[in-house]
Protein backbone atom coordinates (compact mmCIF):
# COMPACT_ATOMS: atom_id res chain seq x y z
CA UNK A 1 0.00 0.00 0.00
CA UNK A 2 2.73 2.43 1.02
CA UNK A 3 6.11 2.34 -0.67
CA UNK A 4 8.87 4.74 0.30
CA UNK A 5 11.92 4.72 -1.96
CA UNK A 6 15.28 6.45 -1.55
CA UNK A 7 13.87 9.28 0.51
CA UNK A 8 16.32 12.09 1.28
CA UNK A 9 15.42 14.87 3.69
CA UNK A 10 17.64 17.72 4.84
CA UNK A 11 17.13 20.03 7.81
CA UNK A 12 19.36 22.94 6.88
CA UNK A 13 22.72 21.24 6.47
CA UNK A 14 21.77 18.08 8.33
CA UNK A 15 21.04 15.02 6.24
CA UNK A 16 18.16 13.76 8.37
CA UNK A 17 16.93 10.95 6.13
CA UNK A 18 19.63 9.34 4.03
CA UNK A 19 17.94 7.45 1.24
CA UNK A 20 15.51 5.38 3.26
CA UNK A 21 13.21 2.84 1.64
CA UNK A 22 10.41 0.88 3.24
CA UNK A 23 7.20 -0.95 2.46
CA UNK A 24 3.92 -1.11 4.30
CA UNK A 25 1.78 -3.83 2.67
CA UNK A 26 -2.00 -3.67 2.84
CA UNK A 27 -3.52 -5.08 6.00
CA UNK A 28 -0.24 -5.33 7.91
CA UNK A 29 1.28 -3.60 10.90
CA UNK A 30 4.72 -2.30 10.10
CA UNK A 31 6.84 -0.63 12.72
CA UNK A 32 9.82 1.65 12.56
CA UNK A 33 11.96 1.60 15.70
CA UNK A 34 15.09 3.41 16.68
CA UNK A 35 16.63 5.76 19.20
CA UNK A 36 15.75 9.36 19.76
CA UNK A 37 16.83 11.51 16.83
CA UNK A 38 17.23 8.61 14.40
CA UNK A 39 14.77 10.19 11.98
CA UNK A 40 11.63 8.22 12.75
CA UNK A 41 9.40 11.23 13.29
CA UNK A 42 10.94 12.94 10.27
CA UNK A 43 9.90 9.96 8.17
CA UNK A 44 6.30 10.32 9.33
CA UNK A 45 6.30 14.09 8.99
CA UNK A 46 7.57 13.77 5.44
CA UNK A 47 4.93 11.16 4.69
CA UNK A 48 2.20 13.51 5.88
CA UNK A 49 3.56 16.48 3.96
CA UNK A 50 4.77 18.55 6.90
CA UNK A 51 8.42 18.25 5.88
CA UNK A 52 9.70 18.68 2.34
CA UNK A 53 11.98 16.02 0.89
CA UNK A 54 14.91 16.71 -1.39
CA UNK A 55 14.26 13.63 -3.50
CA UNK A 56 12.81 10.15 -3.39
CA UNK A 57 9.36 8.65 -3.78
CA UNK A 58 6.42 8.05 -1.49
CA UNK A 59 3.76 6.02 -3.24
CA UNK A 60 0.34 5.27 -1.85
CA UNK A 61 -1.39 2.54 -3.85
CA UNK A 62 0.96 3.30 -6.71
CA UNK A 63 0.30 7.04 -6.73
CA UNK A 64 3.00 9.54 -5.87
CA UNK A 65 2.03 11.58 -2.81
CA UNK A 66 5.39 13.21 -2.12
CA UNK A 67 5.06 16.96 -2.59
CA UNK A 68 1.31 17.06 -2.12
CA UNK A 69 -0.01 19.41 0.56
CA UNK A 70 -0.96 17.74 3.86
CA UNK A 71 -4.69 18.11 3.34
CA UNK A 72 -4.46 16.25 0.01
CA UNK A 73 -2.53 13.45 1.64
CA UNK A 74 -5.21 13.12 4.33
CA UNK A 75 -7.87 13.08 1.62
CA UNK A 76 -6.07 10.16 -0.04
CA UNK A 77 -6.32 8.13 3.12
CA UNK A 78 -3.31 8.70 5.35
CA UNK A 79 -4.18 9.62 8.95
CA UNK A 80 -1.73 10.48 11.66
CA UNK A 81 -1.67 10.25 15.43
CA UNK A 82 1.00 12.85 16.11
CA UNK A 83 3.73 12.58 18.68
CA UNK A 84 2.59 13.95 22.01
CA UNK A 85 -1.07 13.43 20.98
CA UNK A 86 -1.59 17.10 20.07
CA UNK A 87 -5.22 17.24 21.08
CA UNK A 88 -6.65 20.71 20.47
CA UNK A 89 -7.12 21.85 24.07
CA UNK A 90 -9.51 24.67 23.12
CA UNK A 91 -11.89 22.39 21.19
CA UNK A 92 -14.40 20.02 22.74
CA UNK A 93 -13.91 16.28 22.39
CA UNK A 94 -16.64 16.21 19.74
CA UNK A 95 -14.97 19.05 17.83
CA UNK A 96 -11.63 17.26 18.03
CA UNK A 97 -13.29 14.29 16.39
CA UNK A 98 -15.00 16.52 13.84
CA UNK A 99 -11.72 18.00 12.74
CA UNK A 100 -10.40 14.49 12.17
CA UNK A 101 -13.15 14.15 9.57
CA UNK A 102 -12.35 17.55 8.05
CA UNK A 103 -11.84 16.21 4.52
CA UNK A 104 -15.14 14.37 4.47
CA UNK A 105 -18.59 15.70 3.71
CA UNK A 106 -20.96 12.76 4.00
CA UNK A 107 -22.59 13.44 7.37
CA UNK A 108 -24.15 9.98 7.68
CA UNK A 109 -20.82 8.24 7.17
CA UNK A 110 -19.05 10.61 9.51
CA UNK A 111 -21.49 9.92 12.34
CA UNK A 112 -21.14 6.20 11.65
CA UNK A 113 -17.41 6.50 12.23
CA UNK A 114 -18.05 8.60 15.31
CA UNK A 115 -20.17 5.77 16.71
CA UNK A 116 -17.34 3.39 15.91
CA UNK A 117 -14.89 5.55 17.86
CA UNK A 118 -17.34 5.66 20.77
CA UNK A 119 -17.64 1.86 20.84
CA UNK A 120 -13.86 1.63 20.76
CA UNK A 121 -13.44 4.25 23.48
CA UNK A 122 -16.52 4.47 25.73
CA UNK A 123 -14.59 6.90 27.95
CA UNK A 124 -14.42 9.38 25.09
CA UNK A 125 -18.17 9.23 24.64
CA UNK A 126 -18.71 10.23 28.26
CA UNK A 127 -16.62 13.31 27.68
CA UNK A 128 -17.90 14.59 24.32
CA UNK A 129 -18.71 18.09 25.48
CA UNK A 130 -15.60 18.54 27.61
CA UNK A 131 -12.69 20.61 26.31
CA UNK A 132 -9.83 18.48 24.98
CA UNK A 133 -7.44 20.13 27.41
CA UNK A 134 -9.31 18.77 30.42
CA UNK A 135 -8.71 15.12 29.49
CA UNK A 136 -6.09 12.95 31.18
CA UNK A 137 -3.05 11.80 29.21
CA UNK A 138 -4.54 8.37 28.56
CA UNK A 139 -7.86 9.82 27.45
CA UNK A 140 -6.07 12.26 25.17
CA UNK A 141 -4.24 9.36 23.55
CA UNK A 142 -7.55 7.59 22.96
CA UNK A 143 -8.97 10.78 21.51
CA UNK A 144 -5.92 11.21 19.25
CA UNK A 145 -6.41 7.69 17.87
CA UNK A 146 -10.15 8.26 17.55
CA UNK A 147 -9.58 11.56 15.78
CA UNK A 148 -7.28 9.89 13.26
CA UNK A 149 -9.87 7.16 12.63
CA UNK A 150 -12.44 9.85 11.86
CA UNK A 151 -10.82 10.44 8.48
CA UNK A 152 -11.62 6.82 7.62
CA UNK A 153 -8.00 6.22 6.67
CA UNK A 154 -6.56 3.46 4.50
CA UNK A 155 -3.33 3.85 6.40
CA UNK A 156 -3.13 4.78 10.06
CA UNK A 157 0.22 6.17 11.14
CA UNK A 158 1.16 6.63 14.79
CA UNK A 159 4.11 8.59 16.11
CA UNK A 160 5.28 7.29 19.50
CA UNK A 161 1.81 6.59 20.90
CA UNK A 162 3.26 5.18 24.13
CA UNK A 163 5.36 8.25 24.89
CA UNK A 164 4.70 9.73 28.31
CA UNK A 165 2.04 7.24 29.33
CA UNK A 166 2.02 5.09 32.48
CA UNK A 167 2.94 1.43 31.81
CA UNK A 168 -0.59 0.21 32.26
CA UNK A 169 -1.87 2.74 29.73
CA UNK A 170 0.92 1.79 27.32
CA UNK A 171 -0.43 -1.74 27.25
CA UNK A 172 -3.89 -0.34 26.62
CA UNK A 173 -2.64 1.68 23.65
CA UNK A 174 -0.94 -1.32 22.06
CA UNK A 175 -4.06 -3.44 22.61
CA UNK A 176 -6.08 -0.80 20.81
CA UNK A 177 -3.64 -0.68 17.90
CA UNK A 178 -3.84 -4.44 17.66
CA UNK A 179 -7.62 -4.30 17.72
CA UNK A 180 -7.76 -1.63 15.01
CA UNK A 181 -5.43 -3.71 12.88
CA UNK A 182 -7.51 -6.84 13.37
CA UNK A 183 -10.46 -4.95 11.98
CA UNK A 184 -8.56 -4.77 8.73
CA UNK A 185 -6.65 -1.52 8.82
CA UNK A 186 -3.10 -1.01 7.70
CA UNK A 187 -0.92 0.45 10.43
CA UNK A 188 2.46 2.15 10.31
CA UNK A 189 3.80 2.55 13.83
CA UNK A 190 6.82 4.57 14.85
CA UNK A 191 8.04 3.67 18.33
CA UNK A 192 10.88 3.90 20.78
CA UNK A 193 9.30 1.19 22.88
CA UNK A 194 10.92 -1.49 20.71
CA UNK A 195 9.79 -4.54 22.65
CA UNK A 196 6.09 -3.75 22.53
CA UNK A 197 6.24 -2.58 18.93
CA UNK A 198 8.12 -5.66 17.67
CA UNK A 199 5.74 -8.01 19.47
CA UNK A 200 2.87 -6.40 17.62
CA UNK A 201 4.40 -5.92 14.18
CA UNK A 202 4.23 -8.11 11.11
CA UNK A 203 7.35 -6.47 9.78
CA UNK A 204 9.81 -4.04 11.29
CA UNK A 205 12.56 -1.62 10.32
CA UNK A 206 15.33 -0.37 12.58
CA UNK A 207 16.57 3.14 12.02
CA UNK A 208 19.86 4.68 13.11
CA UNK A 209 20.95 8.26 12.38
CA UNK A 210 18.97 8.66 9.18
CA UNK A 211 19.43 5.19 7.73
CA UNK A 212 17.57 1.93 7.91
CA UNK A 213 20.10 -0.53 9.27
CA UNK A 214 18.04 -3.67 9.86
CA UNK A 215 14.73 -5.14 8.83
CA UNK A 216 12.79 -8.32 9.29
CA UNK A 217 9.63 -9.73 10.77
CA UNK A 218 8.83 -8.65 14.30
CA UNK A 219 9.78 -12.08 15.59
CA UNK A 220 13.12 -12.11 13.74
CA UNK A 221 14.12 -8.77 15.16
CA UNK A 222 13.09 -9.76 18.68
CA UNK A 223 15.61 -12.61 18.39
CA UNK A 224 18.30 -10.50 16.73
CA UNK A 225 21.36 -9.97 18.94
CA UNK A 226 22.06 -6.46 17.72
CA UNK A 227 18.48 -5.39 18.39
CA UNK A 228 18.44 -7.09 21.77
CA UNK A 229 21.60 -5.29 22.80
CA UNK A 230 20.69 -1.85 21.53
CA UNK A 231 16.97 -1.65 22.20
CA UNK A 232 15.81 -4.44 24.44
CA UNK A 233 18.33 -4.14 27.25
CA UNK A 234 20.43 -7.24 26.48
Amino acid sequence: MLKIKNLNVFYGGIHALQGISLDVPKGKIVTLIGANGAGKSTTLRTLSGLVKARDGQIKLDGEEILGLPSNEIVARGVAMVPEGRKIFPNLTVRENLAIGAFQRNNKAEISKDEELVFTLFPRIKERVSQKGGTLSGGEQQMLAVGRALMSHPKLLTLDEPSLGLAPLLVKGVFDIIKHIHEEGRTVFLVEQNAFAALKLADYAYVMEVGKITLQGTGQELLQNDQVRKAYLGG
Binding site: S48, G49, L50, P69, S70, N71, V74, A75, M80, P82, K86, F88, I99, G100, F102, Q103, R147, S151
Partner: peptide
Protein backbone atom coordinates in the same frame (compact mmCIF):
# COMPACT_ATOMS: atom_id res chain seq x y z
CA UNK B 1 0.93 21.51 11.97
CA UNK B 2 -1.59 19.28 13.68
CA UNK B 3 -4.42 21.11 11.94
CA UNK B 4 -2.70 20.40 8.62
CA UNK B 5 -2.31 16.73 9.42
CA UNK B 6 -6.04 16.61 10.14
CA UNK B 7 -6.68 17.74 6.58
CA UNK B 8 -7.17 21.46 7.16
CA UNK B 9 -6.14 23.60 4.21
Amino acid sequence: DTARVMGVD
